[in-house]
Design a protein around this nucleic acid. Structure first.
Length: 215
DNA sequence: CTCCAGGGGGCCA
DNA sequence: TGGCCCCATGGA
């Protein structure tokens, strides 16, 4: 993908503004440590994948309740999810909202992991086309895929969300960041911040921390 | 009571 | 592509 020439000079300036703001937020909020990996990479990545789907347009607090119910029933496992009945899954997912849709999404994810990854989502770590394969799952869009890749599989994929767009609009005074494609926003951020899993994890978490306190 | 969270799919022009 | 509507709970 090629950057439009007309964007080149503004992207350089916007990048400076973006980095400066991130430095400021980093000083203000400190290390966020989202989804620290305690488990092995496989269990961690699958848990992150569940959380990434459950948190779609949903407060994280509600996601934690759903994840706790799933853990309580030993359902943080693709095989267990596929063997479980829908009603049980729906009861677990319920507090996170959109529970019927999200239950289908968790099943779709699990089916993908079992059928196409030999039961191990961490197999994707070795696949150059991991992002496209995640995007092929019903219910997994760009933000969810990148969240799984960055926080679950610890691969350098910058996560773009509405807060990121809001921050860019505010910093640059350009409304275009609100309407541009996901991929364009991602390309900009990826070029603005030196590529590093740890720092990209921190940057996205900082932007969310910033977004939460905005009115 | 209203508003909206760490989105994504379907549909339609 | 781009705009709109739908999905749904829970906390402020």
């Amino acid at each position: 993908m090629k950057t439009q020439m007309s964007h080149l000079s503004t992207w350089i300036n916007d990048g400076d503004l973006f980095r400066e703001k991130i430095r400021e937020l980093d000083k203000e909020y400190g290390p966020q440590n989202w989804w620290p990996r305690i488990l092995d990479i496989e269990d961690h990545a699958f848990e992150v994948a569940l959380g990434a789907i459950l948190t779609q347009n949903t407060a994280w607090q509600n996601v934690e309740k759903a994840l706790a119910r799933l853990a309580d029933k030993k359902l943080v496992d693709p095989f267990a999810i596929l063997k479980s009945n829908i009603r049980t899954l729906e009861r677990c997912v319920h507090p996170s909202g959109y529970y019927k849709q999200k239950t289908k999404k968790l099943c779709g994810l699990s089916k993908f992991v079992v059928d196409e990854c030999g039961g191990h989502i961490s197999e994707l770590k070795k696949d150059k086309r991991a992002r496209d394969r995640l995007l092929s799952i019903w219910g997994v869009g760009p933000e969810t895929a990148d969240t799984i890749l960055l926080y679950g599989l610890e691969l350098p994929n910058f996560v773009i969300d509405t807060y990121t767009r809001r921050l860019l609009v505010l910093l640059t005074g350009s409304e275009s960041w609100k309407n541009c494609s996901y991929d364009e926003a991602q390309e900009f951020c990826s070029l603005a911040i030196p590529k590093s899993v740890k720092s990209w994890q921190q940057v996205h978490a900082l932007i969310v921390a910033w977004g939460k306190v905005q009115k």
